[in-house]
Write a protein that binds this DNA or RNA. Structure first.
Lengths: 357, 357
DNA sequence: GATCAAGTCTGTATCGATACAGTAGAAAGC
DNA sequence: GCTTTCTACTGTATCGATACAGACTTGATC
């Protein structure tokens, strides 16, 4: 193309062809509004002048819609791609977004409060999907202030925001009951992190209480109920944090459980990635899951099936699809705020078995 | 908040506080430009009026930057999350984008040409990363016309566009040479798709030639060179398409290779997901990989290590990081167009072995 | 007391498009 | 022949902000 001092706009093209700016706009956005010969002439001139088509930001401003929905993660973006559970969820969101021609903006969450608020304000989107965002996160206020549609997944206690999730407590109970039914009483729990991300090791009951993560509360609560019903004192149940939600981190943290005098006979992990890490640790130590020790996970990610992991299945993809639909399908103002609760089920595979004698 | 007939803007807040619009803008965007007491008064008034902060689209228009980079996939978005190779790449891109406060817009690619062009024009981004986009894709023109920074990965023959990739041909040779060195001459190849996505089955030499996918050409070319050097007639090498890049599809298509009279002694797959599918098919038939049949993949996705798959490792995450940096780091206009070629290596594991006798 | 600098704030001109109402001219209706 | 309808196009107002240059205080300096 020939170099120009200034970028070509609708007006440039309009002047060249000798029509109005509006007509050029129509040539792109509403082809049926003008004669097709003229349209061709306009597009031809646009090509010649190097006009790139209507500017996206300007169009977005004038039209009042962005053509994208924003996904907000509390963890780092790259983490979102590391966990198969997130990936399954994202995939569900992507399916629905895609089928309506909507883009997906993955919004980074900077560490500082001001920066985070700016990031939420700068996102050119038509709605937000909050993924595992703690109830009291500072950026949440900004998001709500923007007045766009919002849905939350998993984490939520605000009844004014539509929500897609599962019954965390009841689902966790499924795994715990499976273990107590098999006779296990010396049970340990492996979690991602409790208070501060990155800190690994045993978490006290107080720390468990102080966690801001509703999912964690729900799952630990479910475990606790069942174990207490079976006569176990929760204060004696080791709750070990891996620090990060990764297989190696869980394998390392599993040392706190496996290399001690009275090793638990069973481990409940609040996620499959953690459970798989525990299995790795067992393998290193020559412990056969299902015989020497029982391990149960949560989520039923694809790898779980291959590892023959007993777990609680939750429909990750469906969660994403439902969340996306809640954002994209317009709702009547009078309608009740939707709260979707998806079903879960226990999937018994090979990593759990009776108490070894 | 009190209901308002019209949305609050900078002006609304400015009028309320009795300052100029510019000052309110500064209160958000350049806090150092005004007295902090005044800033507080302004933010307070904004809260009271329900002003959500500067409008993202308007800000984007005026500033001339979007704060996001666009990722363009040719396949469906949901597919991007299904393949661990893509996920690794995305993760790399996300790491870099995130560290510079940039969002990631995943752009859907609609089927029709016009719709696709519109989608590319409507994306509010500061640059595009084209992921596995065929050289001659119609939407590519629109993207280039926008005049924003662009990088391509894998697929590329346009020297004017920066590129990050690997030496496909040489890398494919590594796998093929490994097999011929082990003595294999009856070798088959498994690919994703050749001409038309979704069509599974054997592909003729003509169809191979007609494929628009440069990655496929490179890899098949590498295999072919090595096999011909070993005295094999390429026309007799079965090239089987799985139709889709998925483990079950590959397992199903493997029937064309495994359930025939003169079964190949080795299978080269152009991707690990396909190779893993072939392994699944072997397992179903009681064939032990590495003993009864050799299977080699490409990519070295995380699952490959667990399946003990021999494969060619390419640095997926690094590819994403480099691509993102090329987009985000400004370059001198005079500078040569960067072309990054990342190293690959053969990883020999358990699924390849000598020819069974 | 004039000059200068720093710190704050204002005003205007734009960024690049689309919405919407309006108009000219041709074709159709009676 | 006059109104109506339709097609094809135009013009103006507006979307909501930021860039940039300027102006007004205030205090310090010589």
């Amino acid at each position: 193309m020939e170099p120009r001092t200034t970028r070509a706009t609708l007006q440039t093209v309009a002047d060249e062809v000798g029509v109005s700016r509006t007509t050029v706009s129509n040539a792109y956005s509403r082809p049926d509004q003008l004669n097709s010969a003229l349209r061709e002439r306009i597009l031809e001139a646009a090509r010649r002048l190097g006009y790139p088509g209507p500017d996206a930001a300007a169009r977005s401003l004038r039209r009042g819609r962005a053509g994208a929905i924003g996904l907000v993660f509390t963890e780092t973006l790259s983490y979102a791609f590391a966990d198969p559970y997130s990936v399954g969820f994202l995939r569900g969101v992507a399916e629905v977004a895609e089928s309506s021609g909507t883009g997906l903006l993955l919004i980074p969450m900077p560490p500082g409060t001001d920066e985070a608020e700016t990031a939420m304000r700068d996102a050119v989107v038509d709605g937000f999907c909050l993924y595992c965002m703690p109830v009291r996160h500072p950026a949440k206020k900004v998001i709500q202030a923007r007045g766009l549609p919002v849905v939350t997944t998993d984490e939520n206690d605000d009844p004014s925001i539509p929500h897609v999730g599962i019954d965390e407590r009841a689902s966790a109970r499924l795994a715990a009951e499976h273990l107590t039914r098999l006779g296990h009483r010396r049970v340990a729990v492996m979690v991602d992190h409790v208070v501060e991300p990155g800190r690994a090791g045993r978490a006290t009951v107080e720390e468990q209480r102080d966690s801001e993560c509703a999912v964690l509360h729900g799952r630990l609560g479910g475990y606790r109920e069942v174990l207490e019903e079976a006569g176990v004192d929760w204060a004696n149940v080791p709750v070990v944090a891996a620090g990060r939600n990764s297989r190696p981190a869980a394998a390392a943290a599993a040392a706190h459980l496996l290399d001690v005098a009275d090793r638990p006979t069973a481990v409940l992990a609040t996620g499959d990635v953690l459970a798989l890490g525990v299995l790795d640790a067992c393998e290193q130590r020559g412990l056969v899951p299902g015989r020497d020790i029982s391990v149960a996970g949560f989520d039923d990610v694809p790898e779980a099936a291959r590892a023959r992991l007993t777990t609680v299945r939750q429909p990750m993809g469906e969660k994403g699809r439902r969340a996306a639909r809640l954002l994209l399908d317009p709702r009547d103002p009078g309608e009740a705020v939707p709260r979707v609760q998806l079903p879960t089920e226990l999937v018994v595979r090979a990593t759990t078995g009776p108490v070894p004698r």
